[in-house]
């Protein structure tokens, strides 16, 4: 669960981590040499009575000699840079994406073109399968960063970027938006959930099953409020005719682990609190405080939780 690049959990992150360690070691070595020389000079050549400093102005041979080790080191580092880049990035021309992720202010839209699954902020992947992700943006520049699994790459409006997303073992991997994207840049988190292939297929099937019609009266009232309060101006619920993507698709919101792109754990209580005033948990977010009554909130929670 650590959000760290010290524990890579995919072949790509592993390659990145190896070259990082190599450069870190070289850097520590060079730093140690410089620090030792400076410290030595500081103690050895401190002013003492009777000493006069020789007035040497340089030596061309030495100047050339101490340029050689840095050149060799850089050639080695450059070689590994090129090698790692080839290993990590998908070849250009490979555009048949398994997942399309779109950055929005301040949440992530996640689509699976093959199965038609649409979700938000939580990316399910089958363990051991290399998924090609297409990254886009609906508004400003965002950056997709899940340090344990993949490189960081920008989501830029008007452009598409591609990266591989893969996990070696099942689990949850956290990530963040890494490019400053406005007021709630801090509240734009990512959760990648790697599952055994069978479980992933199960999840995928459940996510495209048509939502059940609201049967209990409270949920039915919720469905009506969803329309009356213009929720569908921004949010989509499958089967209602709404198609907007200003806010996340809410069809299966009840199956997600977090609310508000990671700012709250998902529970009936938290969903109700969020609906009452989202600005309390995510100030500046594009979802306004609708001044809903307690009863309206309960009806909406009941509706949203009845869908899957």
């Amino acid at each position: 669960m650590l959000l760290t690049l010290l524990k890579p959990s995919s072949p790509q992150a592993d390659a990145l981590s190896q070259i990082s360690l190599l450069v870190l070691l070289i850097a520590i070595l060079i730093f140690a040499v410089v620090a030792a020389l400076v410290t030595w000079a500081t103690f050895k050549y401190r002013e003492r009575p009777g000493r006069t400093a020789p007035q040497s102005t340089g030596n061309n041979k030495i100047e050339v000699l101490w340029t050689i080790p840095p050149v060799i080191i850089l050639v080695v580092v450059f070689f590994f840079t090129v090698k790692t880049m080839h290993a990590v990035d998908p070849p250009s021309g490979d555009t048949n994406a398994d997942i399309i992720i779109t950055g929005h202010q301040w949440w992530w839209e996640v689509k699976y073109p093959a199965s038609g699954v649409i979700t938000a902020n939580e990316i399910h992947i089958p363990v051991g399968k290399r998924m090609l992700v297409r990254l886009e943006s609906a508004d400003v520049i965002h950056d997709f960063w899940v340090p344990q699994l993949a490189r960081k790459i920008d989501a830029i409006p008007g452009r598409s970027n591609y990266l591989y997303l893969e996990a070696d073992s099942p689990g949850s991997y956290r990530g963040v938006c890494a490019e400053y994207c406005g007021t709630q840049h801090a509240g734009m988190r990512i959760l990648v959930i790697a599952q055994a292939p069978a479980e992933f297929t199960k999840w995928e099937t459940a996510q495209v099953a048509p939502p059940s019609p609201a049967s209990d009266p409270l949920a039915a009232l919720g469905a009506k409020i969803f329309e009356d309060k213009t929720c569908y101006f921004c949010h989509t619920v499958a089967g209602t005719g709404s198609t907007e993507t200003i806010g996340p698709d809410l069809t299966y919101v009840a199956t997600r682990q977090t609310l508000g792109a990671g700012v709250l754990k998902n529970s009936s209580k938290n969903l109700a609190a969020w609906l009452k005033n989202p600005q309390l948990f995510k100030p500046g977010s594009h979802m306004p405080d609708f001044q809903l009554s307690e009863h309206e909130v309960q009806a909406l929670v009941s509706y949203l939780e009845s869908l899957p």
Partner: peptide, 9 residues
Amino acid sequence: IPIDWQLTD
């Protein structure tokens, strides 16, 4: 570059 891909921003 591979380090930049992890650590920039």
